[in-house]
């Protein structure tokens, strides 16, 4: 019993986590016609495997040109928001970890409060503000809220990482004759980089996942990100949501996540748990 517990547990975890992913992949291979007619079951029933048709359509067919556009939007917006957010958060986290100053508590409390903020209660006024500023339905209109809402996570993660850095080493390097810039670049940057990188991944996940801002602050393809695009997905027959094409689009939108997870799983786990539970 005791010996079997862990392997069974592992199996349960794998099935639990991956089954829905396998399911949506399977659905994405069911042919469009068979889905309209009804094609229940986990795997495509006989003769209804559409191969890569659905993927081809979603990526290249003119009818679905809103989707490649949404991919560009999502990648662009998420990357810009992540970069800017991590830069701003690095400054703040450095200050929090290393300096004594008035208002430290304020930043921490504020970012905690914002992490808990009900996003939906902002979209009304934000929509109003954004149209006055003329950034409604633009990339910038999404980048700003993404930055604001990823800052708390980035600041928490980064300050936890920074607190672990042995900053004395920098001084030691300087004593050894390095200039302060060299000391910073050669000693501190390599130590801080993993933390910054982890914060960037978590920030990217947030921006990639956002839905509420995506549907409320855009109204055309010019800025609509993937989740909103999926929710408004329309096919050749406007009355019938093309489940299998939608599934193909959903799988495509998951690929970046899977790649990031495969490459950096260790870092992500460290980032999620660092700073979260101390003491």
């Amino acid at each position: 019993m005791k010996k079997l517990g862990v392997p069974i547990g592992v199996l349960v975890i794998l099935v639990w986590c991956l089954l829905p992913v396998v399911w949506i992949i399977s659905l994405s291979f069911k042919s469009e016609e068979s889905v309209t007619a009804g094609n229940p079951g986990f795997l495509p029933s006989d003769g209804t495997n559409a191969g890569w048709d659905n993927y081809n359509k979603v990526l290249t067919d003119d009818l679905y040109d809103f989707f490649p556009r949404a991919i560009i939007n999502s990648i662009g917006i998420s990357l810009i928001a992540t970069t800017l957010s991590v830069i701003v958060a690095t400054l703040a986290a450095y200050a929090i970890a290393r300096l004594e100053f008035k208002g430290k508590k304020l930043v921490l409390t504020m970012s905690l409060a914002i992490a808990m903020f009900p996003v939906v209660s902002l979209i009304g006024p934000l929509f109003d503000m954004w149209r006055t500023f003329g950034i409604y339905d633009t990339w910038l209109g999404l980048i700003i809220p993404y930055m604001s809402f990823t800052l708390p996570l980035a600041i928490w993660t980064l300050s936890a990482f920074f607190r672990e850095i042995p900053w004395e080493m920098e001084q030691a390097a300087q004593v050894d004759g390095a200039t302060s810039w060299q000391a910073f670049r050669k000693v501190i940057v390599p130590l801080a980089a993993p933390g910054v990188f982890t914060a960037a991944i978590l920030t990217f996940f947030f921006a990639w996942n956002d839905f509420v801002f995506g549907i409320s602050l855009t109204s055309t393809e010019s800025a609509r990100p993937i989740p909103a695009s999926l929710a408004f997905f329309v096919g050749a027959d406007p009355f019938n949501r093309p489940a299998s094409l939608l599934a193909a689009a959903a799988v495509i939108s998951t690929i970046p996540i899977i790649i990031i997870v495969l490459l950096f799983q260790r870092k992500i786990v460290a980032g999620l748990t660092s700073g979260a539970v101390k003491g």
Binding site: I72, G76, I80, T132, F133, G134, I135, T138, W139, L140, G141, I143, S222
Partner: peptide, 17 residues
């Protein structure tokens, strides 16, 4: 407002959009 627009446009342009 125009400045905001320009800033927005600049950023968006920079992003190659």
């Amino acid at each position: 407002r125009r400045r905001a627009l320009v800033a927005g446009t600049a950023l968006v342009t920079a992003a190659g959009l």
